[in-house]
Design a protein around this nucleic acid. Structure first.
Lengths: 219, 219, 219, 219
DNA sequence: CATGAATGAGCGTTCATTCAT
DNA sequence: GATGAATGAACGCTCATTCAT
């Protein structure tokens, strides 16, 4: 539907040739970086700390990246990869409210599992170099697009009634609520379990705050 | 009503005695800092730049603060002050859906006016020293509490039906959507005007995605 | 005579305002840098060493320059300044062989006094950033021009006979011999005193290797 | 004639046994290194770049040398070898001015052909380790000695009249002019062709600046 | 013999903070 | 109260060299 696939992957150069080694080392690196970024933020984390946490020397770190910002980009990229992997199982059931509910559940659960990564991503995104930033933002728009099409599908199937704009805002709403679960957990998890949160969220999205009818509708 | 008033203001020490001068200088400082933080983030902004933008020397800057983080705190503090000032006019009309709508409108409009400040606050909050951070988070809970009480008020007045938990989530929802209007504006403002956003937000909060009835309710 | 005065001074930015302080600190810096560059070359000298030799901290060093290359430029610039100061006393006596001899003597003596500086300059020049490099080369061409005009003047005055090209080569010859006295001193000073060198140089320039007549001339 | 043969070749250790392979690899290495040193200087060239330019890995590079400076030494050594090869054809014709002129021509032409190598050598010489440095300087003195003997030969043969010191300075003069053609080419080649330069140089060496008689000589 | 991943000392540079004037 | 020169710890990054494969 969105024909344009402009998102050119922002390649991170490595001076190491062995692709599988690159994969392995970057894995270590990302794992370490996420932990540190979560604790102290991108700017307060030093490259030496990342290397140490990853289990190798500063020299080795720089065999696999070019700049510190590359690490941040790698982290962001990894997150989208994983979220997309998880969400891609939802291709079927398009156009049903049940399918939408499943998607929301899956999305929030994914965030719940990866909340360090998400928090990092939403708080440090602006430190990305220009080209990496636009790649990441595009990825996010793709994700929003996925929910937008689901909502539009439900509307076409007649299960709910939505204008195009409403579908767009609804998609945005879902994305944002997911982010909220990640980076407002200091407030939310004292009061809600994961299950409660998902249920209430879905409920509120579909029905709004209880007891009110849409204007112009009969009781 | 909220009995607990634990939020001890995180004092920022100044070596200058004249209170009105402190006020004036900090004003200049905050104005300059917000501009710079918005452009380049807290970490990429230097104290020299803040001083320069504020119109005095670093020496002078350090007469009014103790550390760079103090500036960030001052910025955050100022924001809540202003938001509270604006929202405090809403004390009346508690317990009506119209009052709630007005509050949401006022809140989002405030954010729209101060979006630089808000963006800064939500992106840099974690750089605050511990005590300042908890003060700021508490301030935000107060704000959420304001909306929570409004929702609860409406429920008590019978206009809508909400459990305590639902009211709490609804309040978070409002807060978070406001934040989104500030720091996801790159995505949202291409698609919605301020008015549209407020309307759809309110609508969605109260009615959910169109056309669906709450389960167990008659059509 | 050479109408074009394109040599735009390559400004070195300092974050310190006080001009006389800049002068003083850069003096210390240049003195220290020359010593170190002489001993170990530009690349093997660290900025910390320069700062230490100059008598202040690394932080202070960077208040007066922007990059390490600025130090090198400052050194080169200083040398030309001094040489020009010294040579400018020769404006009169243009057009006489005696004037030329004096100029050569003065030039070589200057180099003899500043030979560390000259050695540094001729060996490290290529490490200069582009704009600084062309400024320095231009300065040197100016100096060559000075000798070229002197030779041409003698020729016009009829004391010697030279084509334009010969005058130009003669000027280069003088410049280069001066450089040699600076950075081939390990070979030369074992065998010649300063006076001898000047005398022989002048002699050779004017008369060539002894005993031969220009072809076509009578004995 | 010069009885002392103190120049002990500064051996460069290789962990490879096969002599002809050593020869071959070092050839590649030198060729690559000269190109890179010329472009960026010794210090700005990395060992990885040298290896790559030579066509093998750094691992392999270090099988044939011990330190980066060894590469520089190898380059310098190669240059003298080649120059000596070229100049050695001049053993005959000693003692004639024509022989001297041929030698000068050959020397300058050699430099013209190898000017990258010469430039590198004269600019990076000081980065050589102590023992390598003295070996190289000695080589150069040998070359100067060659010209010195030629001049002395001419004098003995009665073609020109020179004291020992004058012969020494004359030799130095020739060497220096050659260097000048290599590393002042930015200035010289705009104004002179190779042929012109050689001719004027020879002329000036033998006759000096035109039109002047040696003092005390009759016209 | 050849490879190239790993190492870490060391470099140039920045910037929050201090304090004498 | 205001200034801005001085400080030095700390940062991101490089690169000569080693050594297991």
């Amino acid at each position: 539907m969105t024909g344009k696939k402009t998102s050119v992957r922002h390649e991170v150069k490595s001076s190491v040739k062995d692709e599988s080694l690159i994969e392995k080392r970057r894995d270590q690196m990302i794992r370490g970086a996420v932990k540190l970024f979560r604790e102290k933020g991108f700017h307060r984390t030093t490259t030496r700390e990342i290397a140490k946490e990853a289990g190798f020397s500063i020299g080795t770190l720089y065999e696999y990246i070019r700049t510190k910002e590359d690490v941040l980009y790698l982290v962001c990229d990894r997150i989208y990869e994983e979220v997309n992997d998880r969400l891609s199982q939802l291709a079927e059931k398009q156009g049903t409210v049940d399918g939408l509910k499943d998607a929301i559940r899956l999305y929030i659960e994914t965030i719940n599992d990866m909340d360090d990564e998400f928090t990092v991503m939403y708080q440090e995104t602006k430190s990305l170099p220009k080209t990496a930033l636009s790649y990441v933002l595009e990825k996010e728009l793709e994700m929003a697009g996925l929910f937008e099409r689901m909502l539009a599908g439900c509307s076409e199937a007649g299960e709910i009634r939505l204008t195009e704009k409403e579908a767009r805002l609804g998609a945005h709403h879902i994305i944002v609520q997911g982010q909220m679960w990640a980076f407002r957990r200091w407030a939310l998890r004292k009061q809600f379990t994961l299950g409660e949160f998902i249920e209430m969220l879905t409920d509120q999205l579909l029905h709004g705050v209880a007891g009110l009818q849409r204007e112009g509708e009969a009781t």
